[in-house]
């Protein structure tokens, strides 16, 4: 507010300060955003006739979801689920085992510079691509099936867990590390006494979270041939068997809910 016009006769006007102070930038941003939105919206070709037609199919899918058909493709569903669940478990375990050393190596406060650089490189490599793209490459190399899926999910787990673990280690209370160092403890003892107790609950939480993510992802990478329930689902949708697709989706949602619910308990116990 301007304060230089203070006089006894002026009545003060107060307005909420706009978030962006400069009016030029403010209006520039507004207009720019509006222009982009219009341009983007009009560049999307929508075939309304096809959409209208699709509403009927959409309704059939909703019906399939409400009255799912577990029976006619039960065998396929069981096999797909079995592949999904087993590759979730194995890839999470392997991923955690590899993530811990890499995560420790990628923590700036305890790792020497060359180790830090290498570990951060591994993390960046693993995080830069979507699981599905990695799956495409692994399927091309290792052939169709859950083994390629297992490799994909392990690889993706490394990027996810190591990064979060490293950040967690970098955020620990340094005074506890200092205290252990001042007793004459070596590097391994510092990791075991000062760092492990501080990061363990979060590591357990993150591992469970990743288990959950790996299961959801296992339902996707099947689309490109890496095994699991995704392949079954893909087939069902291709055949327009919406009731079977609905059944598969319900099973997925149920498992995800059970996983989320039980991981809450484990996390509480780990605190």
């Amino acid at each position: 507010m301007t304060t230089d016009q203070i006089s006894t006769t002026t009545t003060y006007v107060w307005r909420k300060q706009p978030f962006i102070k400069s009016p030029v930038t403010r209006w520039g941003l507004y207009i720019g955003a509006l222009a982009y939105l219009l341009l983007a919206a009009f560049s999307v070709p929508v075939n309304w006739a096809r959409v209208w037609e699709g509403l009927d199919r959409g309704w059939r899918f909703v019906e399939g979801f409400l009255v799912p058909d577990f029976a006619s493709r039960w065998g396929d569903i069981v096999i797909g689920m079995q592949e999904s669940l087993t590759m979730t478990v194995t890839s999470t375990v392997v991923g955690i085992l590899i993530s811990i050393p890499i995560g420790i190596g990628a923590a700036r406060n305890i790792a020497p510079a060359p180790v830090y650089a290498i570990c951060r490189g591994v993390i960046a490599l693993s995080r830069s691509f979507q699981e599905i793209i990695i799956a495409i490459l692994f399927v091309a190399m290792f052939g169709f099936g859950p083994f390629a899926g297992f490799l994909t999910l392990s690889f993706a787990t490394i990027g996810f867990l190591s990064k979060l673990l490293a950040e967690d280690i970098e955020d620990i209370d340094e005074s506890q590390t200092e205290a252990i160092r001042s007793t004459g403890g070596g590097w391994w003892q510092i990791v075991n006494y000062a760092i492990q107790p501080q990061v363990m609950p979060r590591l357990i939480g993150l591992s469970l979270y990743r288990l959950d993510i790996n299961f959801r992802e296992s339902a996707v990478i099947g689309i490109v041939g890496a095994g699991g329930i995704g392949a079954t689902l893909n087939t069902a949708i291709d055949r327009y068997e919406y009731d079977t697709a609905g059944a598969i989706l319900i099973v997925i949602i149920l498992i995800v809910m059970v996983a989320e619910y039980s991981s809450g308990y484990v996390r509480k116990w780990a605190q």
Partner: peptide, 24 residues
Amino acid sequence: MIFQEYALVERLSVMENVLSGRLG
């Protein structure tokens, strides 16, 4: 060494904290 804000390893037991004095 004795610290400001104690610098105990919060999630270890009292005994483990005391024994950590023997780490060297």
